[in-house]
Simulated assay, not measured.
Amino acid sequence: MSQNVTPPMPGYEPEQPQKRHRTVLIAAAASAAAAVIAAAVTASLVRGGSIEADAAPTVTVTVTATPAPEADAAEAEDASSPTGPTPYRIGDKADNGGAIVKIAKVVESNSITLAGTEKKAGDGAKYVTLKTVVTNETKASMDLTCSLPIVNALIDDQARRFDTIDELDEVAGNPECNAQLQPGFEDEMQFVYRVPKDANVAQWEFYEYDLEAEPVPTLVDLT
């Protein structure tokens, strides 16, 4: 029995489709992997090369400054005072350069006694008398009534300043003119002022008279 067999044509090789398909897949996979790696490196460089640092959460802290209540209270007190802070009150021994004055009492009246004679304040006016005790702790004597050992002013709630009357040495109970208060001694002294009838006294200011030093007044609260 004879069979017809067709011999292969010379120089012809059969196609190998499976091998070519595998090569294409490998090349595609390698290309995709390279793209992923390149993208990761680029992102890392853009972010500064620290992925863990970028992943850390950002915390925002808000700080609110609140002024101390004590400071506000001190500023309010200074603002309400006509001429500044008032460290002394009636009954305190207020000191300025060795001149120590203690105000014992503040008296308002329509008249005063000068040299044994009553003197009226007049219409729309009144007298304000500060009864004090003055101690001389300076290095020299003081003439309290006819000189300026203690420069002073009476201040009302409108910051108006008043000078003493001229006849302090004639006020009953005051030292005589040129009576020198020696260092280490004290004497009673009345500072008398003539002011408007409706004036509300607020402070008393004084300082030791000294031509060689810049005066820094001491304040006494009279309210």
Results as ranks from 00 to 15, higher is better:
196 P>T: 06
189 M>F: 15
40 A>K: 07
179 A>I: 00
4 N>F: 02
196 P>F: 05
206 F>L: 04
119 K>M: 09
177 C>Q: 10
107 V>Q: 09
210 D>V: 13
65 A>Y: 10
116 G>P: 01
52 E>P: 00
9 M>T: 15
65 A>I: 13
183 P>S: 11
5 V>N: 06
116 G>M: 01
222 L>D: 10
164 T>W: 02
200 N>M: 06
128 V>T: 13
110 N>P: 01
192 V>L: 04
94 A>M: 00
217 P>M: 05
69 P>H: 00
133 V>T: 15
29 A>G: 10
120 K>D: 09
84 G>A: 09
121 A>F: 00
139 K>G: 03
26 I>T: 15
185 F>H: 07
155 I>M: 10
65 A>K: 08
201 V>E: 03
129 T>E: 06
196 P>I: 07
220 V>K: 00
200 N>S: 11
154 L>F: 07
66 T>C: 05
219 L>T: 11
19 K>S: 08
181 L>H: 03
171 V>I: 14
80 S>T: 07
42 T>Q: 06
25 L>F: 11
169 D>I: 10
16 Q>V: 15
181 L>K: 02
75 E>D: 14
173 G>Y: 03
151 V>H: 06
218 T>M: 09
2 S>C: 04
35 A>D: 04
35 A>L: 15
95 D>H: 01
222 L>T: 12
204 W>P: 09
59 V>F: 12
68 A>T: 07
194 R>P: 01
9 M>N: 09
33 A>I: 15
189 M>N: 11
53 A>E: 14
137 E>R: 10
149 P>K: 07
2 S>T: 14
24 V>M: 12
90 I>W: 00
81 S>F: 03
177 C>W: 13
45 L>A: 14
1 M>A: 08
198 D>W: 03
43 A>T: 10
221 D>I: 03
210 D>C: 12
95 D>N: 06
81 S>H: 05
69 P>A: 01
181 L>G: 03
177 C>Y: 13
185 F>W: 05
87 P>I: 13
65 A>P: 02
52 E>H: 05
85 P>Y: 10
60 T>R: 12
15 E>M: 07
83 T>F: 10
67 P>G: 03
97 G>Y: 05
48 G>S: 08
9 M>Y: 11
51 I>V: 15
113 T>H: 01
126 K>G: 01
1 M>N: 03
190 Q>Y: 08
204 W>F: 15
105 K>I: 07
38 A>F: 10
177 C>F: 13
27 A>K: 14
64 T>V: 13
220 V>Q: 00
199 A>I: 12
180 Q>Y: 13
150 I>E: 08
148 L>I: 14
104 A>M: 03
50 S>W: 10
63 V>C: 06
201 V>T: 08
87 P>W: 15
111 S>Y: 04
97 G>V: 12
8 P>E: 05
175 P>Y: 06
17 P>H: 04
84 G>P: 14
96 N>E: 04
115 A>E: 03
49 G>K: 06
175 P>V: 08
146 C>T: 11
120 K>C: 00
174 N>R: 08
35 A>H: 03
18 Q>W: 14
30 A>R: 14
71 A>C: 01
51 I>E: 08
111 S>W: 02
160 R>T: 15
131 K>I: 12
65 A>R: 05
203 Q>C: 04
